[in-house]
Design a protein around this nucleic acid. Structure first.
Lengths: 349, 349
DNA sequence: CAACTTAACGCAAACGTTTTCGTGTTAAAA
DNA sequence: TTTTAACACGAAAACGTTTGCGTTAAGTTG
């Protein structure tokens, strides 16, 4: 159970000073070839590695980035992490994960835990509760201390920071247009209540698509679910609402849902009612996850390129971290929009 | 862009020494009430928080644990992380994530990156490549430096460390017995090649169940897929193999698959061949994920309680970290077995 | 031979804490 | 008045690095 060896121990063992050892290992030409060789050999033998914590303290730089997300058991978010991890590792950074579980206080606590020197910057997607409370003091405080933040997906426009978003409006508009050009006349929308920014935008895209094709939107074709509570729990409620929707609107021939699960539920109910997909009803969902790919019929979806979002966010953050030189030039913040892509599968034609 | 305030700055500002400030903030009775109040008020005003890195260096303890997993875009692993994060946070620890992507070298590099002081201990599940190469030097080296490791799910018996596993054998045996008692006479197995420990055990469970019910296993009913390459890629190959299986063995009335995707593929093929589930063929899978729950028909699976595995692993690790006092008493390692549970859904009866 | 350069190394500060051990002041006890 | 004890605080070491600068000895130059 020998502890990791330190410079001091090497120095004592070889009867030189600590600085000599340090310089020798960094191949400084202040040190003679002889001693360098001796020290390097010894260090290699004992598998010396500089202590990261000491380095962090000295350099005031941890080479670690924190990522705060609402939940991790979620295809989209785990894909984002995967992207972040990927470029972070390649650029010499570690990733430390915090989960808010959609709770405001956990988000705040998590950020405070990490903001005290543990990391160099944040990548985050804000929780639903934070979006509702509209309390953003923790973001401002963090940034005022010189710690950069990159927000992704669920962002807030009031905060000045780098952002990576998806064009929710355009993505859903495209999807609905696809339904229209495929012959749908009566398209229903299954969405969430409005306080979540992305849900709002997707609803708007739906409306714009209808408008541009001179189709009058009907209120009874729009189903707004309350997703404050975990939606898995309310699956039954969802399904019965959808069934109601179908039964009172026999003309429905297309469905656009703002997430995978809503779309799948719609398909399930449709099948139960004896409707064929995509012959009688076409379905398109938002968010491309495992469910869409492996459902039968497989689901046409709007892909958000989650991994690419993570990669972009990580690059933005690290770029910012690595050129903090300009003290006076006004800091500028970018907003990168990741293009969505319609992945066509069996649920549409 | 004011940096975070330090003890030194407070000391200078209030014209006292650094140690006085430190003691005052920790409410030491060495300091007079007056100065304590003054210092605490000042610290609160400037929102002083001790620098974590400095604390880590001083205490030789980072209060951070590292978790290395093969991939994160995977229901099982993200559930485990969720469990780890949960107890870690409650016990005052942070979690830093490393992905091996099933690669030996990435696993080694990731561990080396973290082992140099960044974390206090590891929780990990080894990559497929490591399992094949059977090269475990990085685990031994890490542990010989006094850094504890907890392995979960994919463990290696040669290594002496804490482990959290699932009773793969018993779990799959139960599942197959369930099929038998539900009337299945001819049960096929869809599994992976043998080098992955868990696949091997699940196969064994299948065989034992058959044996105990006096059913002779037939080689032609066992389909062994090569999953070294990403299985999503080989989905087509999988399906055609399963189709072949069905066509050459018309008697099959039950399927046990060692993971979700295999089970889903089997259901898909069965339906394509006009077979009804669960009337003609019953299907049970291992690993309870989103796919199983939302498939139609929903899939009966063996749940591994992934979150609980993560929680258990984290508790084991932190327990070990927080009682390193006994220097001589022989260190002992626990292996916790998490009971599996058969989640009955529509694909069986 | 005196003055100067150069090579090779050590000292010490710094990063931000905590904590042990002084030390000076004041008040109480002898 | 002298001794003692309590009180309130500061100095310094330690955690493990890196680095600017000082120092020594040898060698070089005029």
């Amino acid at each position: 159970m020998k502890r990791k060896i330190t410079l001091k121990q090497i120095a004592r063992e070889l009867d030189v000073s600590i600085s000599t050892v340090s310089k020798a290992l960094r191949n400084s030409d202040e040190i003679s070839e002889d001693t360098k060789q001796k020290i390097q050999a010894f260090a290699k033998l004992y598998n010396y590695r500089p202590n990261n914590i000491a380095l962090s303290l000295k350099n005031r730089k941890t080479n670690t980035i924190g990522i705060i997300i609402p939940e991790i058991v979620h295809h989209f978010f785990s894909m984002v992490i995967s992207g972040v991890e990927n470029v972070a590792n390649n650029r010499g950074y570690n990733v430390i994960v915090g989960l808010s579980n959609e709770s405001f206080s956990k988000e705040v606590i998590n950020m405070e835990m990490l903001a005290n020197g543990s990391i160099d910057g944040f990548i985050l997607s804000i929780s639903k509760e934070t979006q509702q409370l509209q309390d953003y003091h923790h973001f401002n405080e963090t940034m005022s201390q010189g710690m950069p933040i990159v927000m992704f997906d669920r962002v807030v426009s009031d905060i000045k920071c780098d952002k990576v978003i998806v064009d929710d409006l355009k993505g859903s508009k495209n999807a609905v247009e696809k339904l229209i050009t495929s012959g749908c006349k009566s398209i229903a929308l299954i969405t969430t209540k409005d306080y979540v920014s992305v849900g709002k935008l997707r609803t708007q895209g739906y409306l714009e698509a209808l408008h541009e094709h001179k189709i009058l939107p009907k209120a009874e074709l729009i189903l707004k679910m309350d997703d404050t509570l975990d939606y898995e729990v309310h699956l039954d409620a969802l399904e019965s609402e959808i069934e109601q929707l179908f039964k009172t609107n026999k003309t429905i021939d297309g469905i656009f849902a703002v997430n995978e699960l809503y779309a799948l539920s719609a398909m399930k109910v449709a099948r139960k009612l004896g409707l064929d997909i995509p012959k009688d009803i076409q379905v398109i969902g938002f968010t491309d996850g495992v469910l869409s790919k492996h459902a039968t019929p497989s689901l046409t979806t709007v892909s958000q390129h989650a991994q690419q979002m993570g990669e972009t966010a990580a690059n933005l953050l690290i770029d910012k971290l690595e050129k903090e030189f300009d003290a006076d030039t006004e800091e500028e913040f970018k907003t990168v929009v990741i293009a969505t892509e319609l992945i066509e599968r069996e649920s549409s034609r």
